[in-house]
């Protein structure tokens, strides 16, 4: 696949297409394996009667109902759509919505200016949080209107947020991306050359 990217020759492109087709056939089997693994995990939980093992029956019930309705009748079936819109959608949305409450509580406890690093994090967080909502600029514009620089520095809250995202954030992110990419390349080479065998269950 790597070599096909360097050649526009029809043979090279033919290999590229063929590998893609094979990969497309193999990929859905990952879904089958993941389902089997999930079932095995929950069967073990029930057999060993670990904490909250009763909930594992709900996993089986959920899978069974969606499979029985979804596979023969398709995702446009009204019952399947009803189950999605009235069970999965509100549950999923509710779980994520709870984050707001926990983040607020965690922020109250964790954001303490104990040292220089924590203070920097705290100040940055406050600037970005304020700059990300309209009320930030509203407060800034009200305050700046009391000074002679009202016309020179409007919407300073969103400007500062944008500066943080465009400069320190961008630089740090790029460093992370480069580091991760180099790590992925070196790890791939180790796997291709047979140096790295831990994914086969080996020791190193």
């Amino acid at each position: 696949m790597l070599l096909t990217q360097f050649s526009p020759h029809s043979l090279s492109q033919g290999i590229y297409e063929e590998v893609l087709n094979w990969a497309r056939i193999i990929t859905p089997f990952a879904l089958v394996f993941s389902t089997i693994t999930l079932l095995q995990t929950h069967i073990t939980r029930i057999r060993r009667q670990t904490e909250h093992w009763q909930y594992s029956f709900l996993v089986f019930a959920g899978i069974a109902i969606m499979v029985v309705v979804g596979i023969p009748f398709g995702p446009q079936n009204p019952v399947f759509e009803w189950l999605f819109n009235n069970v999965q959608l509100p549950m999923d949305a509710t779980m994520f919505s709870l984050l707001a409450f926990f983040i607020a509580s965690a922020a109250y406890r964790a954001f303490r200016a104990r040292n220089l690093e924590a203070s920097l994090l705290l100040i940055t967080a406050v600037i970005v949080m304020l700059g990300n909502v309209p009320v930030g600029d509203l407060i800034w514009n009200k305050l700046i209107s009391l000074t002679p620089w009202a016309d020179t520095y409007p919407d300073g809250s969103s400007w500062m947020k944008q500066w943080i995202l465009d400069n320190p954030n961008l630089s740090a992110r790029r460093g992370i991306i480069l580091g991760v990419s180099l790590g992925v390349i070196s790890q791939s080479i180790r796997i291709i050359l047979g140096i790295e065998r831990s994914y086969l269950g080996g020791g190193d």
Partner: peptide, 24 residues
């Protein structure tokens, strides 16, 4: 929703400020 979010952000900032004052 961005107006709603504005109030939640403000609340969190106020809580953080109160928490820090009390801490110091």
């Amino acid at each position: 929703w961005i107006n709603v979010e504005s109030f939640v952000h403000l609340l969190i900032i106020i809580l953080v400020i109160i928490g820090n004052i009390a801490f110091f």
